[in-house]
Design a protein around this nucleic acid. Structure first.
Lengths: 315, 315
DNA sequence: CCGATATATGCTCACATTGAGCATTTACCC
DNA sequence: GGGTAAATGCTCAATGTGAGCATATATCGG
């Protein structure tokens, strides 16, 4: 009855990885050059087709990433499978063939590029997502363009819906900024034609990427920003020993907002996420900080805590 | 560089849907008969292969579901793409060919089966997930078998890890029950060989399904149980007008735990999720309740609230 | 009509969590 | 030795959460 008839479809299945790290208080993503792309879209995520030799999707992904970047992956999590033929402007998808991509999120500890892979800041691709220095001034230009798009809607009702979405995702007057809505913001910019991936000629909304890789990256950032709140995944990005200050700066780099220092420490402490080591560190001026390490045991304990980010502080 | 070479792979891509509803305080899933399956595995989810005629994955899914069940889908969300060749014991996957399935979660309002599709209770497939009447007695037998499996590990370290996982997912002595870990519990039972999908001959852990459809269903239940806490998705399952008592019983049915009535009402009220209608209803004995309706406007408001389930009450 | 029973609904209270800030400690730099 | 920069310790008000008590308003069986 529901037995698939193994004749009809033979789509291409691609695997792609958003490999994330945090070095020197800056969140990074591992990128590779992509040939044959339109101007300004020559950067992409490590990716490759699923091959018969791959025992599982994830193993196939790991193989491609190692081949292309030399990076071996630790924490890996499936993100989403993208299949919109319509979205594909970068090559594939001709005829009735589907080009389907399974995207993954990977977290790694260190940044040592290999081959022609390079680490880039997340905010190269999403400059408006970094609010650590307050609301980026460039955001005004963006929302102006978005509102212009909303105003150009065919009927008033559609225009109102567009305005609502802009307010919801970019944080209207009264409403706040939700740092998890990375994908929704990118989708809005895409629909409004403000990104090169959708035909725009300027890079007002950040550096473009090949295929729909920037959409995958947006998905990854949103997922990670959400996940650090209820799972201790930040520690996948930290060195074995770190200070609470470093930990906080990494969390701030990932989430793009600043946090209240004392409350952050209280949270980490009462969740039992870390334990002290004997060592302290000198750092740049100020009182030396104690080096901490992640308490692996929390993975076996009850509520499996994360770092519920508070609402942030002014800056 | 990372350009996929369109030669190597031509995997079969399937689409499958866990279509969920809640009728008469019981959570339901729409199932179809599946031919050619081993004994006791003749039930499955609506599914079919991705076809070139399908413009997008989701549109392909909707087409298959309507063809097989007559049900048209409202809320649809992608769950996960399953691709483990090894897991596939039910037919496909021979040779080096991958059989890849993109699973979806769908929420619908009413239950009116068509063709030979039937609505079944979730708890037919996961009896141990229903704790509304307290801890199910059958759970003891299950955890006994699981602990036996842990004890039969090749080395003590592995056995300890297994015991830890059992305690974590099924709620050990001191630790509580986390209703969202449906998939982890099923995976554990699978690994322990306690489900027919993994070769077991009895149905101690609930009714089996064709292929890996029960795994997909577990993924769907876990996702929905999590999502109702931070998005107002329950209302996709409710009729246009309902009482707070009905709403609570649906939430309890989905999550499998009982809630404190007064606190539930306070939560719903202060989140502004519903508004009163003029009507009241008679019901079965007791004071008549006011009929409420979902406030669609909340979708446009700030924190996009859900129904954070409290820890539950004894029962 | 009366009381028993079953929900619905209103309200209180102790306790935990959260957002914000003040104060002190301990290093380095000049 | 004084100035500067973090790290660390503590307090306090506001809010949120878990549990119950009390009241309102139906139906049902005599």
């Amino acid at each position: 009855m529901t037995e698939p008839e193994p004749t009809v479809s033979a789509p291409l299945v691609g695997l792609a990885a958003a490999i994330l790290a945090a070095t020197l208080d800056e969140p990074r993503v591992l990128t590779v050059p992509v040939a044959g792309q339109p101007d300004g879209r020559g950067e992409g995520l490590p990716a490759g087709p699923l091959e018969p030799a791959h025992p599982t999707l994830e193993r196939g992904l790991r193989a491609w990433v190692e081949r292309q970047t030399g990076q071996s992956l630790g924490y890996v999590e499936q993100l989403y499978t993208f299949g919109d033929r319509n979205r594909r402007r970068g090559g594939q998808g001709e005829g009735g063939l589907h080009a389907l991509s399974v995207a993954y999120l990977a977290l790694v500890r260190e940044a040592r590029p290999a081959a022609d892979a390079t680490w880039q800041s997340w905010y190269r691709y999403f400059p408006y997502e970094d609010r650590r220095a307050g609301r980026p001034p460039a955001l005004d230009a963006l929302t102006d363009r978005l509102e212009a798009w909303a105003g150009a809607a065919t009927d008033p009702e559609q225009g109102r819906r567009r305005s609502d979405r802009i307010g919801l995702t970019f944080g209207a007057a009264g409403s706040g900024w939700n740092e998890e809505r990375v994908l929704e913001r990118y989708e809005l910019l895409f629909e409004a034609g403000l990104v090169p991936e959708a035909g725009a000629s300027d890079h007002i909304a950040g550096q473009a990427m090949a295929f729909d890789h920037r959409r995958m990256l947006a998905t990854a950032l949103g997922r990670l920003r959400g996940k650090i709140k209820y799972r201790p995944v930040v520690f996948e990005l930290m060195p074995p020993a770190f200070t609470l200050g470093q930990l906080q700066r990494v969390v701030e780099a990932l989430s793009g907002v600043l946090l209240h220092k004392q409350n952050f420490r209280r949270l980490v402490a009462q969740q039992g996420l870390v334990e002290e080591t004997e060592a302290v560190t000198a750092e740049t001026g100020g009182r030396p900080a104690r080096l901490m390490r992640f308490r692996r045991e929390v993975l076996l304990e009850r509520p499996v805590p994360g770092l519920r980010l508070p609402s942030g502080r002014p800056g």
